[in-house]
Amino acid sequence: MTEMTTQSEGELGVMYPSPSILASPIHFYRNIVQNKSMIANFVRRDVRIGYRNSLLGYVWTVLQPLLLAGVYYFVFTIIADQEEELYPIWVLIGVITWQFFARSLNGSITSISRNANMIKLIYFPREIFALTTVGSNAIITSLSLLVIIPFILYYDLPIGLHFLWLLAGLSISAVMALGIGLMLAPLNAVHGDIAHLFQFITKAGFFLSPVMWTLRMIPASRSDMLNYILLNPMVVPLEMMRCGVDGSEFQIEGVWIAYSIGFALASLLLGVIIFIQSEWKAVKYI
């Protein structure tokens, strides 16, 4: 079959263009820019509906991590006699950050399968589903971060530029969740097992990552474990979030920061390519 345009007068464009692997990131970027309004509306919807039918509304975004942190405070400080004064706020930040990562990741992984109905009725770039999931979670998380203000006042923590660590930590988590999510969303549309697997992984990661503990709590005798722990790319963003709140110095070596950022960016790049190249096959399974 020739691909020559037989009609010289019509500038017919191919429906469903298939960008090459190298052009995929550009295609992805263009789709975001062209659909800004839709993305914003989806994010607004997701942020609103989560809490609209509840009495306390957005208070839940704050209350949930707070209550969870209360439980860990009880277990670690009262039962296990953890002496760190700042422990409650560390665990609170850890829980908020991990919840953001886990929800964004699981939401992006299921983004094709969850939206099967819409996908069958109208065409728009399907990566928008994963983007809006991460976007709405980022907004909800930013709201829930407001809960640290009373803690900062109570512990008399410094106020300053170190707050930028929060932005860095959230950004790395977001990029990583989106990247891995895009990578696996088409596969999950074919095999729903992926979502179940990652629900487990994010639950296990809650304990294996420094969410309810921090690197500072590792006993000196086991410091040989540190390099293995840092292989988990979420350690750096979690610790960044802690430094962003308590103003302490960021102690992880630069090479590990580079590793984590590189991991996030590489997964985004790979995720975008895999998604753009395979989503059209995946939607035929839903």
Binding site: M1, T5, V14, M15, K120
Partner: peptide
Amino acid sequence: IYRPSKGLVR
């Protein structure tokens, strides 16, 4: 919505 397995829509 569906990309043809074969052929083209323009």
